[in-house]
Amino acid sequence: MIEFRSVSKQFPDGTLAVDDFSLTIPSHRTTVLVGSSGSGKTTLLRMINRMVDPTAGTIEIDGVDIASLEPVKLRRSIGYVMQNSGLLPHRKVVDNVATVPLLRGVPRKKARADALALLDTVGLDRTLADRYPSQLSGGQQQRVGVARGLAVNPNILLMDEPFGAVDPIVRAELQQELIRLQTELGKTVVFVTHDVDEAFLLGDQVVILQQGGRIAQIGTPTDILAHPANDFVASFIGAERGKRALHLERHDGRDVLVDSDGRLAGVLVGDAPGQGVGFR
């Protein structure tokens, strides 16, 4: 469990990125921090592994104040996935994945073997193991980034807009992978995005943030959709102008979903397909 208690962050140039922020992030669930730029979501995420230290307040992981922990050691126990993967360009894929285990002293052979298994986990072909990141596509690189984050089997996985730099088709695939992984592994995932649809897809708990890290609403995707707390939330999720309020109509013998403006939003196809997709 990750606990933010009255956390503030003021940068040396004076900007107040986060002001008096408090939040409990439950274990084994995916919590999504969503907001536009300037909402402090990335700052909050990076406070968890002490890439940024708060100027006020405390952050606790499982009851331990992380300010008392050594940052490098802390980071080696937390998985971190960023946009544009941040892979080391001069290391092979398998060595990139094995980065943290090697830092922790795991023998080379074992670390590499584990890394190869992780490539399976994230859905990558093992033949890519000896390639270099520049030889991979964007989507493949992101998967490697996720594999690296999972390498030490951390309880916590921090993800900073990890699917933002790939095209929509790849993004959808990667989102599905994450959902599948979560079902298998049950990590405490803290996910940052500016895309509200992605938030609703992935999050068990969604935190909508305004400027300065102020919480506009917390809840499950269904809660927020059904009952947006204020105008900001409503406009953010696109609930205004009735884009989210859909009703069923019958056109040409088929059930279609229509929004309040009479625009066609989708087609009703019956039961939910295969793996968990859409709203829980």
């Binding site: 941040g86 980065t99 830092l103």
Partner: peptide, 15 residues
């Protein structure tokens, strides 16, 4: 050097 690679290296726990 790409700043992202350095930031990632620091974030995953390199001293």
């Amino acid at each position: 050097i790409d700043r992202g690679a350095i930031d990632a290296a620091r974030a995953v726990g390199m001293s």
